[in-house]
Design a protein around this nucleic acid. Structure first.
Lengths: 354, 354
DNA sequence: GGCGCGTGTGGGAGCGCTCCCACGTAGGCT
DNA sequence: AGCCTACGTGGGAGCGCTCCCACACGCGCC
């Protein structure tokens, strides 16, 4: 009882104008002539509030310019209203790709009318990974968005173990258990190769990504499917292994030309490798697209600025970002965790290299 | 008194193992055989703790795997341990530049061993700006990092008005009042033009950015200084206005060639404009670098992939990011706000276009 | 031997919310 | 008319910290 009267006194003092800083829920309640609970219900959109009370509260909020205190909310509600976007360091360069930028834009767009915060987390060392694991364990975020996950990345499993809502960009394998949003890599690659075939190319080679990456295998599968659908068999001499880098593209292209000088079309599983291939083709005196048609994947800035401009497979990146965020929000909202797997279609952007 | 005994009972119950979830400061205190205050002091590095108590607390923390609850800290301490990185939407594309990615990497590196969180905030509409202003007013962050600020951007002034620690990347004018970290645009441009002069070029044109951008004026100033230092006067016919886009670069280059067909060197105030200029030069039958030497600014991915690879002025972007973060942390740490203005040197990256 | 100070310490109060229990009050039923 | 339900509501308790006051020691001094 004593405590209660003290509290009331203080509330009165506060009401008398002493108070510094921004208004609290309590002050809104006093102003609206209702209890704290009612204000809270209005703010959180509970249906169990009369129209009259709701209107009064909303007016008071507007007059006072009330903004809820996030920390207090987080503490009382045992949530954070924040999600982490995790970017492994080796990939930070990829950041520089429109790909990333678009994903982030998509995420931002989806989050815009939520009051979720987006935390940027760069993980560059095992030590930082350990630290991030602590973060997770300490429930400092409500969910996690992971981009460019490698097959051996332990983070997704850790997330699953902690029962932390998470969405991957891409997947680690066909059996990916964690929720993910991926592009249709198989379909995109198939469409690219089909396009080359349609343009009359017959000796179509492919430069793959590292075979331990699922995305690389998918793009190779797409190549195989398209070739087989054309009735031809896949000639393994036309498949060269790259590593998604420009230099890797160069090496692979040299191999291919040595094995099969009659190549008239190349599907590179990334724009960067296409750029490398293009350089080697030029060195060898071959013209693009007259002698050899070339298609890349990703539709990055490099594609647009190559000479000739590179035909490439575009992923719906912004849409992927949006979807990732949406899926994560859904997962956070529901209690039992249902995994969601979304695959979005790709599009062939035709330029001058075919 | 009643309240106190109740609390004690609960603490005991908690100690008896009922409790769910992560350990609290209270539990650490019990385990270490000290009071809550002492644990708090150890965590916050207060010197007024005996070595014995400190050791006991640290042991307890390690055993329990204690991680402080951020929300509780924020609520009690009236701070957030978070800073916002604000990116205006029109610039989100710029995100795709290594420039941005490097800045973010720098920021991340500096923040890595702090326990500051980095909040990504994309602002694309006036409505979102208003909302962000509310965020600020509600003290949801301890400080703000602003990139690519326009001269008419109201945000910096708002921040100053709210007395919110803030650091700009770049500045709005010579008189910038808010703290900033900028590259030496004047010096970089001057070095680029001096380089062209040193290679024997005499009719050196420049393609500028929009004149209402301070950075564009700086780069133009650098051009002027270099030309004047060479003993020649600045011929205004050699100055064409661009807008930092590729198309703008094209237009400006056409103008320049129409006015002065004898141009033998071009300094473009951005790589993208250099790319546009390069295309027009090729159309006009001029070779780069034999007929016309070309230098860009920014050293973006485009520069590396142009044909020929573009000589460009590199800004120490990662270092800028690091510095921004450091400066902001300092500003947050001290109570009276001292503005800091940091200008970092640039570097000419020589490739094949000169 | 008593007084004062400084240093290390415990723990109360409170940050601003959410959760939930308990209390009206109005309606529908027998 | 009496009872039960349903809904709208007020407000206590508590989330896990930090801040700070007050207390206990130990030491030096006069």
């Amino acid at each position: 009882m004593v405590a209660r009267s003290r509290k009331q006194q203080e509330a009165e003092v506060a009401m008398n104008g002493r108070h510094s800083g921004r208004p609290t829920l309590e002050e809104v309640a006093v102003r609206a002539g209702v209890g704290r609970g009612t204000v809270s219900r209005v703010i959180n959109g509970s249906p169990r509030v009369s129209d009259r009370a709701k209107a009064a509260v909303e007016a008071a909020i507007a007059e006072l310019g009330y903004v809820p205190n996030r920390a207090a909310r987080a503490l009382a509600g045992n949530r954070t209203d924040a999600i982490a976007l995790v970017i492994p360091e080796p990939e930070t360069r990829l950041f520089a790709e429109p790909y990333f930028s678009d994903i982030i834009r998509g995420i931002g767009a989806e989050l815009a009318d939520t009051d979720m915060q987006l935390l940027l987390t760069l993980i560059r060392t095992p030590k930082e990974r350990a630290r991030f694991a602590q973060y997770l364990a300490a429930h400092r975020v409500d969910g996690v968005l992971l981009v460019s996950v490698h097959e051996d990345d332990p983070l997704p499993d850790l997330l699953e173990q902690l029962d932390m809502p998470a969405v991957l960009n891409g997947r680690r394998s066909d059996l990916e258990s964690v929720s993910y949003v991926d592009a249709d890599n198989v379909g995109g690659a198939r469409a690219a190769v089909a396009h080359l075939l349609a343009r009359g190319r017959r000796q179509i080679a492919t430069i793959t990504g590292p075979p331990d990456m699922y995305v690389a295998r998918c793009r190779l599968d797409g190549y195989r499917q398209a070739v087989q659908e054309s009735g031809a068999g896949v000639d393994e001499a036309l498949v060269a292994r790259g590593d998604f880098t420009e230099e890797g593209g160069r090496r692979a292209m040299r191999e291919l030309l040595a094995r099969r000088p009659d190549i008239d079309g190349v599907f590179a599983a990334s724009d960067l490798m296409a750029a490398g291939a293009r350089a080697v083709l030029r060195e060898s005196g071959r013209r693009v697209p007259q002698d050899v048609a070339l298609i890349g994947f990703e539709d990055s800035a490099i594609a647009r600025h190559m000479d000739p401009a590179l035909t490439s497979v575009r992923q719906p990146t912004e849409e992927m970002g949006r979807t990732m965020a949406r899926v994560l929000l859904e997962e956070i909202a529901e209690r039992e965790s249902v995994r969601r797997h979304v695959v979005l279609a790709t599009e062939l952007v035709q330029r001058d290299s075919v």
